[in-house]
């Protein structure tokens, strides 16, 4: 009887300690399990955040585009027309009254101011959104853009090779925006004398190379990595294009954008 009890006591002690041990191990396992699930969850959330962020960027790009179009149209149609009406009236005054001396000077100066204002409105609205992008397509718009900048402090050369495609959808507009941004960057920051924009068409893709003979750029430099570069990378991401810095020296820079023609 006494012997039996001893072994039973031992049993109880073993069972008891086992039970406590299992509890502790269970607790440890619980923490490990929790941490692992947390990590997975975190990863999932991170991916979702990234997707969300991308979506927001896309939306922002889209809304910028519509906004630009709206402002350009407004500028063009309202302010342009009002300036024109003002000019008509001034011209009417000029033809109705014989101005002389100071009055004549004032009249002709006002006329010139109005001319310049209309030109500015036209230029600004064109820079915001090429009015006829839908009609002229990518290549002509880029060409026109280069022509407009050519000779204004630098030479801007436009070259095109391969079988040109008439391309005018939203992706084309994005390409146009990227080129615009790249060339503007070169004009503003690179102190370049010659900027070259080269379009190379092939069956599957369009290569756009923007090169200049300026001072190059530093990607973590505020100006270049700022809004401009952010815009460029996001836009090229949006259209699934590849952006490549081919050359970046103090003697010049070249950036190549490869856009697959079929998305």
């Amino acid at each position: 009887m006494a012997e039996l009890q001893t072994s039973e006591v031992v049993n109880i002690i073993i069972i008891g300690s086992m039970g406590m041990l299992i509890l502790c191990v269970g607790f440890a396992v619980f923490i490990a399990l929790y941490q692992r699930r947390m990590f997975q969850e975190q990863e999932k959330r991170r991916i979702m955040d990234l997707e969300f962020q991308n979506k927001m960027i896309q939306l922002q790009i889209d809304s910028t585009e519509t906004e630009r179009k709206r402002i350009a149209a407004d500028l063009h149609d309202s302010i342009g027309s009002l300036l024109w009406a003002a000019k008509l009236n001034i011209a009417f005054l000029g033809r109705s009254v014989d101005f002389s001396g100071e009055l004549k000077d004032s009249y002709s100066e006002t006329m010139r101011m109005l001319d310049q204002s209309v030109d500015s409105v036209r230029r600004i609205s064109w820079e915001l959104t090429p009015e006829a992008f839908n009609h002229t397509g990518l290549a002509s718009s880029i060409k026109e853009f280069c022509t407009r900048l050519d000779g204004k402090g630098q030479k801007v050369i436009y070259e095109e090779s391969g079988r040109s495609v008439f391309w005018k959808d939203d992706r084309a507009l994005m390409v146009y925006r990227i080129v615009q941004e790249l060339v503007n960057n070169a004009v503003k920051h690179a102190q370049a004398n010659v900027i070259r924009v080269r379009l190379k068409w092939s069956a599957q893709a369009l290569d756009v190379e923007v090169s200049d003979d300026g001072v190059g750029f530093v990607l973590n430099d505020k100006v270049r990595s700022g809004v401009g570069w952010w815009n460029i990378t996001n836009r090229s991401n949006k259209i699934g294009a590849k952006l490549l810095v081919k050359e970046n020296t103090p003697k010049g820079a070249a950036i190549e954008l490869t856009v697959p023609l079929e998305s």
């Binding site: 009890q5 039973e8 109880i12 008891g16 039970g19 509890l23 502790c24």
Partner: peptide
């Protein structure tokens, strides 16, 4: 969890070991 399951164990075994 630890305290009460331990107590439960003590309670059960104390009933079992009655007399010793």
């Amino acid at each position: 969890l630890f305290y009460y399951s331990g107590s439960l164990f003590v309670f059960l075994s104390s009933n079992y070991l009655e007399g010793d």
